[in-house]
Design a protein around this nucleic acid. Structure first.
Length: 254
DNA sequence: ATGGCTAGTGGAACTAGA
């Protein structure tokens, strides 16, 4: 099974690159974040032409998540929303069963700054994820933009991020608790010492200077992690016409 | 780096991202 997760920063703007990704990698499961679409505008027809069916949670101008499966193995038993999240209508979590695997596509709140009211709401969201993971039965994958860099190796300038979101102890502890509930960080599992990023700021040429963060994760239950044969980031989708600020993360399970 | 881009809304200048 080949799975990809990608924060597309508008599915409308990124549709050509998404179709390119589907054709090139032919994944069995796709988790998308920041689709930024209304339910009415979700591009079901274009995805169907490419051979994919979608389960999605779409709220309009911000956020929005989706799980895609092949037309012959479409997403089933869809659950939209995360029990316990502070903002129930922000469309940051959707679950579906694809090819026998329970898959959640997640877009964790940014948090804005450590002193913002959005920050404790981010921590509550991460706690709710841990609760939900404990309720779900493997085989399970939680994939998406977690908006937390798990460790300093996942940050281009750890000292520069002290006092910012994405690297604080509170965020990292809660992410670790999600993993401790029975999941494995697929990329780090296969590449214990490598520094590769999944997000780069659009500004100031950060991508070309190699200044990024690893904040997009594929977290797999241990039974699946034992069958992991490949996990990597396709940086080509951060280049070329109209790139997202995130690159897709891919994993293959034997 | 004090935000140096991009996207959505709406039709200027804001919010939001991380």
């Amino acid at each position: 099974m080949k799975l990809v997760t990608w924060n597309v920063n508008s599915l409308k703007q990124r549709l050509p690159r998404v179709l390119e990704l589907l054709a090139e990698h032919q994944p069995d499961v796709v988790c998308l974040q920041e689709t930024k679409t209304t339910p009415e505008a979700f591009p079901h027809d274009e995805l169907a032409e490419a051979g994919y069916a979608a389960a999605h949670h779409s709220g309009g101008r911000w956020a929005g998540v989706a799980v895609l499966g092949r037309t012959q193995a479409p997403p089933r038993d869809v659950t939209a929303g995360l029990p316990g999240e502070v903002e129930q209508d922000e469309c940051r979590w959707v679950e579906a069963t694809v090819a026998g695997v329970r898959v959640a596509s997640v877009y964790v709140p940014n948090g804005r700054s450590l002193d913002s009211p959005a920050f404790p709401a981010k921590l509550v969201f991460l706690e709710a994820m841990r609760e939900r993971v404990g309720q779900l039965t493997p085989p399970l994958v939680v994939a998406g933009d977690v908006n937390v860099a798990p460790a300093d190796i996942d940050v281009y300038d750890p000292a520069g991020f002290v006092g910012s979101t994405h690297t604080s102890e509170g965020e990292r502890n809660r992410l670790q608790q999600i993993l401790d509930a029975g999941l494995v960080d697929a990329y780090r599992h296969l590449h214990p010492d490598e520094q590769h990023f999944t997000w780069w700021d659009y500004r100031a040429g950060h991508f070309h200077k190699g200044l990024g963060l690893r904040i997009d994760l594929i977290m797999a239950s241990k039974d699946l992690a034992d069958r992991l044969t490949h996990c990597g980031i396709d940086r080509s989708y951060r280049k070329g016409p109209k790139p997202s600020d995130h690159a897709p993360l891919l994993a293959t399970f034997d």
